[in-house]
């Protein structure tokens, strides 16, 4: 089964995935009209800042077993086996934030949601775009990502690609050939790191 795979080393922190996610989970599904909706649609993927100001698209891992599901008081969090996705029943959710204590990745937010019951604050997180997937579309964050930091593929094929990448790096003569998989990203991240280290942490914040 295809799933969203994150390649953090390729994230430039442009946050287009956040905009696409919010739009995909709006009532009108269109950026321009989504902007005037009430409540304002919010993203379910969150680009965080790393220690060297690199971007990191943080998103629900749909863990199995899922710690949030295990602690949910009203039993609102469940696994949809068809899409292998952890979902929240918006009617049952009581906004108790117990799942905030359980999620080690910090990807659950609490607000009124465009697609939830009106005027009710609920827990909101990535739903793997099951609505889009059922219409044959890939998740919105993947569709919009320009850097290949988010891909939609079989886990096995992603792993194979990474394994091949690793094998090429350590193979005989790799140093001479200078095998680098994503030179632009490596350079960008090296520059960010050097910049932070040169200027000192205070100046960089």
């Amino acid at each position: 089964m295809k799933e969203v795979v994150i390649h953090p080393e390729r994230c430039v922190g442009c946050m287009q995935c956040m905009v696409a996610c919010a739009t995909a989970h709006s009532k009108t599904k269109n950026l321009l009209t989504a902007l005037v909706e009430s409540p304002l649609p919010k993203p379910r993927i969150h680009v965080g800042v790393g220690l060297y100001r690199e971007g990191f698209p943080n998103r629900c891992r749909h863990c199995d077993p899922a710690p949030c599901m295990m602690v949910c008081l009203p039993g609102a969090i469940y696994r949809d086996e068809t899409w292998n996705t952890v979902l929240i029943n918006t009617e049952r959710c009581i906004n108790c934030a117990t799942c905030a204590m359980a999620c080690p990745f910090g990807v659950i937010r609490y607000h009124e949601d465009s697609l939830g019951p009106p005027e009710k604050t609920i827990a909101v997180k990535c739903d793997n775009c099951v609505d889009r997937q059922s219409r044959g579309l890939v998740p919105a964050c993947v569709e919009v990502c320009k850097c290949g930091a988010l891909t939609f593929e079989e886990q096995s094929s992603s792993l194979k690609r990474k394994t091949d990448e690793m094998a090429r790096r350590v193979s005989v003569g790799a140093e001479d050939r200078g095998v680098v998989e994503s030179p632009g990203f490596d350079l960008l991240n090296a520059l960010k790191k050097a910049n932070v280290e040169l200027s000192g942490r205070e100046a960089s914040l």
């Binding site: 220690l51 799942c99 080690p104 910090g106």
Partner: peptide, 29 residues
């Protein structure tokens, strides 16, 4: 939840501790 799981695992924190206080603290760090 990220901070609680650090407590629960009782793993030493190697990054600057003050960073955990910042509002921008993120799992990626």
């Amino acid at each position: 939840g990220t901070l609680l799981s650090i407590i629960q695992r009782q793993i030493p924190v190697s990054m600057e501790k003050e960073r955990l206080l910042e509002p921008g603290f993120d799992f990626s760090q």
